[in-house]
Design a protein around this nucleic acid. Sequence first.
DNA 1: ATTTTCATTCTTGTATACAAAAATGCTTGA
DNA 2: TCAAGCATTTTTGTATACAAGAATGAAAAT
Lengths: 218, 218
Amino acid sequence: MERKRSDRIADDLEGLIFDGTFADGDRLDEVQLASRFSVSRTPVREALQRLAQSGLVEQIPRRGVFVRQPGPVELIEMFEVMAELEAVSARLAASRISDKALANLHAANERCKLAVEAQDTDGYYRENEQFHAILYRQSGNGFLEQECLRLQRRLQPFRRVQLRVRGRMKQSMSEHEAIVAAVQAGDGDKAAEAIRQHVSVQGEKFHHLMASLKPAAE
Amino acid sequence: MERKRSDRIADDLEGLIFDGTFADGDRLDEVQLASRFSVSRTPVREALQRLAQSGLVEQIPRRGVFVRQPGPVELIEMFEVMAELEAVSARLAASRISDKALANLHAANERCKLAVEAQDTDGYYRENEQFHAILYRQSGNGFLEQECLRLQRRLQPFRRVQLRVRGRMKQSMSEHEAIVAAVQAGDGDKAAEAIRQHVSVQGEKFHHLMASLKPAAE
DNA sequence: ATTTTCATTCTTGTATACAAAAATGCTTGA
DNA sequence: TCAAGCATTTTTGTATACAAGAATGAAAAT
């Protein structure tokens, strides 16, 4: 169910920012975008305001809206918060998860494993997202679930980059195993710590993330 | 610096929802609001969309926007997340806080104490907010700080209700003492646990919160 | 030559006009 | 009497028109 034009435009713009068509600092001209999408300025403005609220662009009054990619510091901060939110999710899920959901978690993890073996980065990304989504859901806290999904979505392009690092997928998988084991054992603290490690940006991951911010020459 | 009319309207509407002028389920009519604020529909619509994104109203396509107050379950969920976010803040702050900020924390706490002694609920609320804001800031994570402030703002009207419970201010103060002590000692885990207790809705607090949702028939 | 001022142009913010979808209520048929 | 169908009216979503603030650039003064 497509809501309205302004929603489609917001999604499209999000994609265009993620894929680099619009880079950090670029000004998003309302009339240009309007003609690009063959609509009037009205739905474009509504879309831009949505993006502004989600933090993807900055809106300076009477000046215009500008793409605002997070810098290194903000990115680390966001990952830190993501890690903590996921840790809370996992801790709660460890005590609240249902048997059926636990089976689903196993299944999702298996699909991750298959994707790793098939060297299917996109597939792994998709299944990994599912894996995490199950934990959010099983936290039993719908609001927490939504917050996790929101932040996950915002960090999406950077997570993808992380996965392309050689060997990362395999390491990620072994971390998954630890998480599943802790959740199955009902050990909330252990599950929280395991997923915190899984998500947080440290050591090698940190350097790779930083490197990805300034596209390497050639 | 007042940004634009739509911003002022969004703030005003937020207030009108908080103070009960618009109750849960009420439909917010664009043209009525436009005439009420003596503007056209355009800024009203922009304001409504902002409120929709922040979750205060629900926007049903082609139907209108309706006030959407959180129910008991969602409220508990939000407080749970708030408690966890504050716990993270406090844990980080315990290791990252500066001497100067620690002094400010003490000072803010003293002002809380004065407000309690003066039976000044509004004053206590204000100073308490300051107290918490210092911890958010001293987490050293600007993104976390923003998220905390956002959720704090959303829970604002319900927190106020909580404070009106007899004896709550005094109890709240003693919890503050524990938090300050733990932060000063640099004990992150203890600080986290103390603030979690302080914020989370349990026992008596739970019942009072539930009671506040359905205004007691005298 | 450089800077300041002022007019012009462009862009955003707001108002209004129009289109389309949904709600409303009437009529008509059983 | 009640329900179904259709016309009318309301209301949202989009387009366009207008207003006001900001950027731009040229002319004038030092």
